[in-house]
């Protein structure tokens, strides 16, 4: 079996395991890429994941840079397709199902029951990001100010991101 086909199969499997997104599938990704196949060493794996977190965009793209590191541009393409396509196809069919069931009176309340989990997990990633952002009073101050700004006003969050960066540059 060629490397690319193996990559495609590995990432497709990971895609369907990734309930909760990239961070949820990280341990299994590490097991597959580092421990089982030996495609990456430990340090490279951690660095590439950190890189994907620092860059804008969905963190699941860590898979793409790992594919790129393992097998060049073709590896990037195969890893990205493998990671995104199976989950996207599933989402497509579920969307179709909800459209077909639109008239059902139980659908809206059932779906609304999932909302607190989604919001709770967004808040949890905020907490985890706060811990990662540093333990200085200034970092906490920026987190608190930004939370209130985004929560209580309708202005673009770009203002706090830029402000936070400027404060960091001046004081950190």
């Amino acid at each position: 079996m060629t490397l690319l086909l193996q990559l495609l199969l590995t990432f497709s499997t990971l895609s369907l395991l990734a309930i909760g997104g990239a961070n949820a599938v990280l341990p299994e990704m590490h097991r597959q890429l580092v421990e089982i196949h030996g495609w990456l060493d430990d340090a490279t794996f951690s660095q590439l994941f950190a890189l994907a977190q620092a860059a804008p965009g969905p963190n699941i793209l860590a898979a793409s840079v790992m594919g790129w590191r393992i097998a060049g541009p073709a590896g990037l393409a195969v890893a990205t397709i493998g990671m995104l396509l199976p989950a996207a196809i599933l989402a497509w069919f579920v969307a179709g199902l909800t459209q077909r069931l639109r008239g059902a009176t139980w659908l809206k309340p059932a779906q609304f029951g999932l909302v607190p989990v989604a919001i709770g997990l967004i808040a949890a990633s905020g907490v985890i990001m706060t811990e990662a952002a540093g333990s200085s009073w200034l970092a906490w101050g920026i987190v608190a100010a930004s939370t209130i700004f985004v929560w209580r006003t309708g202005f673009s969050p770009l203002w706090v991101l830029a402000g936070g960066g400027a404060l960091g540059l001046l004081l950190l």
Binding site: S125, P157, V160, G168, L169
Partner: peptide, 29 residues
């Protein structure tokens, strides 16, 4: 990770929490 990016990361963390609070407040579950 320049100090600039540290500041941005802290603001981004607040942005994420502010979003969760805003959604919860608007939806009033």
């Amino acid at each position: 990770v320049a100090p600039f990016m540290q500041g941005v990361a802290a603001a981004a963390a607040g942005m994420v929490m502010g979003t969760a609070l805003k959604m919860a407040g608007n939806l009033k579950p």
